[in-house]
């Protein structure tokens, strides 16, 4: 960028974006340490009493625990499934590959409210509604393309000759897969797993549809509490999500580097 007017305009817009993106996080962090009983500006003073309060609040703690279960189930289901699918899409010649692509993108093209209600009806039919684990399966379904995407981009970078060389040296199919293919796609698997965990943790709409009072996950719990009243204890529990997001961003940066998302395909 050489022109100063371009710089000015672009940075003004970027400034607006930065404020819009960061404000809620900063405010939530600030509100969580207020000593007042309601959220006010400027804050009444510093206190950690709301953290104490949420540590005591059984329903919030249970909701957090259920969200962790949902995320774990989601990763356990989606990661192996998405990994082999990603490998299949890049390493094998398949017929109807365009049709498969359209089919596997359904979780993204079908609106979440549609997939959520559909799965609610299906799970209801199967008699598994009212458990926590189906929510994890549902999260695995709706975010599956993320894993397939990240694994297939890693798999595309693997030289086919390496697998052939392994087989030439006497490795069987399982050995080739375990010692050559899998390590090569590992960056994609880790990125995918991380994405799936965090997205399932923060997933809202599908959880709202699939949970009842006994199985609410944390985002749904926060949503329900907001509807009644806005108090600082919600800000304190929201900090859980900020911390998880910070860890996720840090891990993602350490493992694959955030810059990878800027690469052109």
């Amino acid at each position: 960028m050489t022109s100063s007017s371009q710089k000015l305009i672009f940075w003004t817009l970027v400034g607006i974006s930065i404020i819009t993106l960061s404000m809620p996080t900063i405010i939530v962090l600030g509100a969580s340490v207020t000593s007042g009983n309601i959220i006010a500006f400027p804050p009444d003073g510093f206190s950690l009493k709301w953290y104490e309060k949420i540590a005591m609040a059984r329903e919030l703690r249970l909701a957090l625990w259920r969200s962790l279960i949902v995320s774990t189930v989601c990763v356990i289901v989606s990661l192996p499934v998405g990994t082999v699918a990603g490998i299949a899409l890049t390493r094998y010649r398949l017929k109807f590959v365009n049709l498969i692509n359209i089919y596997l993108l359904l979780p993204f093209t079908v609106p979440l409210i549609g997939s959520g209600i559909g799965m609610m009806l299906v799970f209801g039919e199967w008699g598994i509604l009212g458990n926590v684990w189906p929510v994890g399966v549902a999260c695995a379904v709706i975010n599956l393309p993320f894993v397939i995407w990240s694994v297939s981009s890693s798999a595309a970078a693997l030289d086919r000759d390496l697998e052939l060389a392994a087989e030439n040296c006497g490795a069987g199919r399982m050995e080739t897969f375990w010692y050559v293919t899998l390590p090569a796609v590992m960056p994609g698997v880790i990125t995918g797993g991380l994405l799936m965990f965090v997205l399932a943790m923060t997933e809202f709409l599908v959880s709202l549809l699939l949970t009842d009072a006994r199985t609410v996950t944390l985002p749904v719990q926060i949503y329900n509490n907001i509807r009644s009243i806005i108090t600082p204890d919600l800000a304190a529990i929201s900090v859980v999500f900020v911390v998880i997001a910070l860890i996720a961003v840090w891990l993602l940066d350490r493992l694959v580097g955030l810059e990878i998302f800027l690469k052109s395909k």
């Binding site: 996080t25 939530v28 985002p219 919600l234 999500f241 900020v242 997001a245």
Partner: peptide, 19 residues
């Protein structure tokens, strides 16, 4: 700055805006 809100999730961000 871009990734943090992406991972924090819709509900918490909307809650921030409510405040």
């Amino acid at each position: 700055i871009l990734f943090l809100p992406f991972f924090i999730g819709q509900v918490v961000r909307a809650y921030g805006w409510l405040i």
